[in-house]
Design a binder for these strands. Structure first.
Lengths: 202, 202
DNA sequence: TCGTTACTTGTCCATCGGTACAATACCCAG
DNA sequence: CTGGGTATTGTACCGATGGACAAGTAACGA
């Protein structure tokens, strides 16, 4: 199985060579001619009309991976839609690139974990899935935990919440810890992002 | 790495045993207790509230794969959105299940190729490709400060932002301090409350 | 009565987050 | 050339945060 790299710029990407010493850097036109089914073609997203290059390759059974210096959820979705099986940062560690190669060669899809959530969330909701109602989230909490969660979601510090609810800061932490556990978030930032639009209550 | 199977029905799934002889069939409750990060939990979609089971497991680093006797694009998206890393037919060939295991263990996503194409094709159009312009708030920031601000607004920690932008945590703090000063906010909580809706950009 | 749940508070500690004191380097306009 | 803006990194300090480990009270149902 051969590896081909397509990049518009003249930039050198030593990580590519490190991960795949036998790979060749080719033009977009050459990639179309040279890549055989089962081969892997790594395309930098600075390549003009890269979706138009990825699509026919993907349909021919070529494994296409799009690489970007500035990955975004939108581009990841576009890449997958264009037939790419992977999307990752152009400066990813060689070990990560090899992992992506392994995954894509086995019919898997490789997308950075942080992009996954947003891509899928947007996709799922676009298809009419439940937008994950905050009220559902909150129903799992006790009344006191809900008070604390909503206050924190409005940007209050533990100390401020404690004053507002007339309890000690330690108790706020206790409730907050329960909230984190029940909602499966790791800190108050994640909580704000999940309950963000629900921050209108006093 | 251990394999766990969760199924509501009493059905036997000989393919499971064939692909993973050392695997154990457990209840949903036991799966929560027994599965460790790195383990794989295979959940039949006849399990009541399987998304609620998949979500905490996935967040704990457990590899979750949803299996169905009647796969659909909608369910596949719901599975992935719930934190599952794979979705496949319950009667898939053992070789295919092993392939799915390999892919998911390497941070990949495994979804039947035909489902992926249909689902993504439909959604990309529904989402429409809008590049999302920089807002008024962000126009006062330098490019680097914007990168940091948007990453933080997505809930990233300073350490994560540093890794993402390939700079030290100290530099992240420097940029973030400038962001706070320019936008007139006190901390990252206020920042996420102000930029919350712009958390889509990379 | 006993077990469970919710609510409350305590101490200790590791880590994170934000700031104040810097410094070095690059680029660009004047 | 020189100053200003940007990007980068360093050390040090300290408050904020979150978890570990406990424990007390009150209410409610079996």
């Amino acid at each position: 199985m051969a590896h081909w790299f397509v990049s518009h710029g003249r930039d050198e990407f030593p990580r590519w060579r490190e991960a795949f010493p036998a790979a060749r850097l080719v033009s977009a036109a050459d990639a179309k001619l040279l890549a055989m089914p089962g081969d892997a073609v790594w395309i930098m997203d600075d390549t003009p009309q890269w979706p138009s290059l990825a699509m026919p390759l993907g349909q021919r059974g070529v494994i296409v991976v799009i690489m970007s210096l500035a990955p975004s959820g939108h581009d990841a979705l576009q890449a997958l839609q264009a037939g790419a099986r992977g999307y990752l940062h152009a400066l990813a560690k060689p070990a990560l690139m090899e992992q992506a190669a392994l995954v894509t060669q086995n019919q898997g899809i490789w997308v950075p974990a942080d992009l996954m959530g947003r891509v899928l969330g947007a996709t799922y909701q676009a298809l009419g899935g439940e937008p994950r109602l905050p009220s559902d989230e909150l129903s799992a909490l006790t009344e006191r935990e809900r008070d604390v969660a909503l206050a924190v979601a409005r940007g209050k510090s533990n100390k401020e919440v404690a004053r507002h609810l007339d309890i000690t800061e330690r108790t706020v932490k206790a409730h907050l810890g329960a909230v984190f556990r029940k909602l499966g978030v790791r800190d108050r930032m994640q909580l704000v992002l999940r309950l963000g639009q629900h921050a209108e209550v006093s």
